[in-house]
């Protein structure tokens, strides 16, 4: 071991050193490579129409992934985000059809989601149950609430949205006629979340708690509060995603968001967010999502049969995770 006394390291050198080791760097390189290959091999990929679709499709899953990343950093995970999004949306849509003003309706949906997250957090911390089982149940519960509310019939907002241009713009409008509004909202949230995760003391406490709960407790951090707030943040983000969904698809289908938790989870894992907590960045997780979305797009462009798509996608996710573990192991060996 080459250990020396503390020396002032040059911040610039330090920055590049960290950049070299960061997961984000390698993901960006891979993504750029995929993009280059796709634009050479497929004439449609680089077309603005395709890119527009890509950007529009990333917003909802992107916001859900941000929430998943936060919970995972706190040492948990949330399987209920897709269902909670659907439930939050059902609340808002129902309220709108009953004549409630859109802002209030959206608020109702968000509060519904927040309550969900709060209850999940309380059960997880008070009874010391695993996130896995509690959120698995909430996945069913939230979806069940939707079924009961709607009797399984989709709520259509097509006529309502005609009188609510702002709400309609959120999901299907384009800024300057080119950039999807939903993507802009997502990007703003993503940048804010990434900065918040890097700089705020609130989020730092989430990292500490996820990294070593006991040590966080011994450092005077209120770990239960941190864990509950992480759950609430995740559910509220699902609520925000629901607004875009509702607006984009002009209504609520009872199966909205099914499987979204799996996309978010695999994106986060590919992006270097640890299942054990305490590790990962918002940017990394979202690059993971971009990777998945690109693979999906590539399969569409090359007209891969729908039956094959899930299979291929998850094999790629698995390979990525295995590669990651092997790399980590090699690095540890080198260090010790």
């Amino acid at each position: 071991m080459n250990e020396t006394q503390v020396k002032k390291s040059s911040p610039v050198l330090d920055f590049f050193k960290r950049l070299k080791n960061a997961r984000e760097t390698s993901l960006i390189l891979i993504i750029v490579a995929i993009c280059i290959v796709l634009s050479i091999t497929n004439p449609y990929f680089a077309k603005w129409a395709n890119i527009q679709t890509l950007l529009g499709s990333i917003a909802i899953n992107g916001i859900l992934t941000i929430g998943m990343i936060i919970v995972m950093i706190s040492g948990g995970l949330d399987l209920s985000i897709g269902a909670v999004m659907c439930m939050s949306m059902a609340f808002s849509a129902k309220a709108i059809t009953l004549g409630v003003p859109p802002i209030l309706a959206i608020l109702i949906g968000l509060v519904g989601a927040a309550v969900c997250g709060f209850v999940i957090g309380q059960i997880v911390t008070k009874l010391n149950l695993s996130h896995f089982i509690v959120t698995l149940c909430f996945m069913g519960i939230a979806r069940g609430v939707v079924y009961v509310m709607t009797s399984g019939i989709s709520i259509s907002l097509v006529s309502n949205l005609k009188t609510m241009p702002t709400l309609a713009f959120i999901g299907s409008g384009y800024i300057g006629g080119t950039v999807p509004m939903s993507f802009v909202i997502f990007l703003a949230l993503a940048i804010a979340a990434d900065l918040y995760a890097r700089k705020s003391s609130g989020m730092r406490k989430v990292y500490y708690t996820g990294s070593n709960e006991m040590a966080a407790k011994h450092s005077g951090i209120k770990i239960n509060r941190v864990k509950v707030l992480a759950c609430v943040a995740c559910s509220v983000l699902a609520g925000i995603a629901s607004v875009i969904y509702m607006s984009k698809y002009s209504g609520v289908s009872v199966s909205a968001g099914e499987g979204a938790e799996m996309t978010a989870l695999s994106a986060a894992v590919i992006g270097g967010v640890s299942m054990n907590g305490g590790k990962g960045t918002v940017a990394g997780g979202l690059l993971g999502l971009l990777f998945i979305v690109l693979i999906q797009d590539a399969m569409n462009l090359f007209s891969v049969q729908a039956f094959w798509q899930d299979l291929i996608r998850y094999v790629i996710v698995l390979l990525a995770v295995i590669l990651d573990v092997l790399q980590e192991r090699a690095r540890k060996k080198k260090n010790s």
Binding site: Y208, N212, M214, A215, A216, K217, H218, I221
Partner: peptide
């Protein structure tokens, strides 16, 4: 088990109990 955040760097460990002040 109870003291350190092993996968974090020295800086982050040092400030864990000191967050409020900074």
């Amino acid at each position: 088990k109870q003291g350190l955040f092993l996968d974090m760097d020295i800086e982050m460990n040092t400030s864990a109990a000191y967050l409020q002040q900074i």
